[in-house]
């Protein structure tokens, strides 16, 4: 079987398209690369959606943690504390358990025992909590002069937040937020590994790497392939975030841009 044929058969196997049976013997390098790459689609799906949705919740949490209203402040603080303070491993366990119990309450919760929805929720909350903390730290270190200047120009309320505070917050938080994004994509490998069951052998990159390691009894081929894929993915993320970063800082002179990068070197 040619490699091109393998790609046609297994390229979208993780989504349930293509050959139903996984390769069972005479595993070729091509099969391993194709299937693990196919599984990577799930990692990208989880990572991208959780990151996008998490971004907005994170902003809300960051403002909430600094809010004057005590109830909002306490709620945001605890949300961040619980999701940052416990391993994802345990969060997946509880989420799966909770969704199972909720399922008997109402059929609305049916999809949440599947990874595509249930794990996405957990990852969404998780990244929102981590990013929320980063944004909160950035909010606190916004130079007082910036805010004073905004006041002097007559900005107030939403406009002040939208045009002055929020962009500055992003600018300060961006390096740390980039790290968080990388970590989130790494964390997606835990979905099928510990939290949620894999249906019809549709899993993520680690699931297939694990499958091959299990069948060939040789961990030294599939896991390095997986590692290679993730290094590429990380490079893509770094590239995209770098582009956004230069857009965020486009008003600054070149020298200042480079210096800003290293200010907040917080990693998760």
């Amino acid at each position: 079987m040619s490699c091109w044929q393998t790609i046609q058969d297994y390229g979208l196997r993780s989504l349930g398209i293509g050959e139903r049976l996984l390769p069972r013997e005479d595993f070729t390098l091509c099969e391993q690369v194709t299937l693990i790459g196919s599984g990577l689609l799930w990692n990208i799906y989880f990572g991208t959606l959780a990151l996008l949705a998490g971004f907005f919740l994170a902003t809300a949490l960051a403002i909430g943690k600094g809010a004057r209203n005590r109830a909002i402040r306490v709620a945001s603080t605890w949300f961040i504390f619980i999701f940052r303070g416990s391993p994802l491993f345990i969060q997946f366990f509880f989420a799966y358990f909770a969704f199972l119990s909720l399922k008997s309450v109402s059929p609305i919760f049916d999809p949440f025992t599947s990874a595509w929805a249930g794990a996405l929720i957990v990852l969404f909350f998780n990244t929102a909590a981590y990013s929320g903390e980063i944004f909160y730290g950035a909010l606190r270190s916004i130079p007082k002069g910036d805010v004073d200047a905004a006041d002097a120009y007559g900005f107030s309320g939403w406009a002040r937040f939208r045009r002055i505070i929020w962009p500055t917050m992003l600018r300060l938080a961006w390096p740390a937020y980039t790290n968080e994004a990388i970590f989130l994509f790494h964390a997606t490998t835990l979905v099928f590994f510990s939290g949620f069951p894999a249906w019809q052998q549709r899993g993520d990159a680690l699931y297939y790497a694990n499958y091959f390691a299990d069948k060939t009894f040789n961990p030294f081929v599939p896991y390095p392939i997986l590692a290679g894929y993730f290094i590429l993915l990380t490079l893509v993320i770094l590239g995209l975030f770098g582009l956004i970063n230069s857009r965020l800082n486009r008003h600054l002179p070149k020298e200042a841009r480079r210096r800003l990068k290293l200010r907040v070197n917080i990693i998760r």
Binding site: L21, P197, A198, Q200
Partner: peptide, 19 residues
Amino acid sequence: SGTIQAAYIAEQGATLVEF
């Protein structure tokens, strides 16, 4: 996952769910 039973179900065509 990774047992002969899992491989058997996958082959038989029932919907396999692995833990």
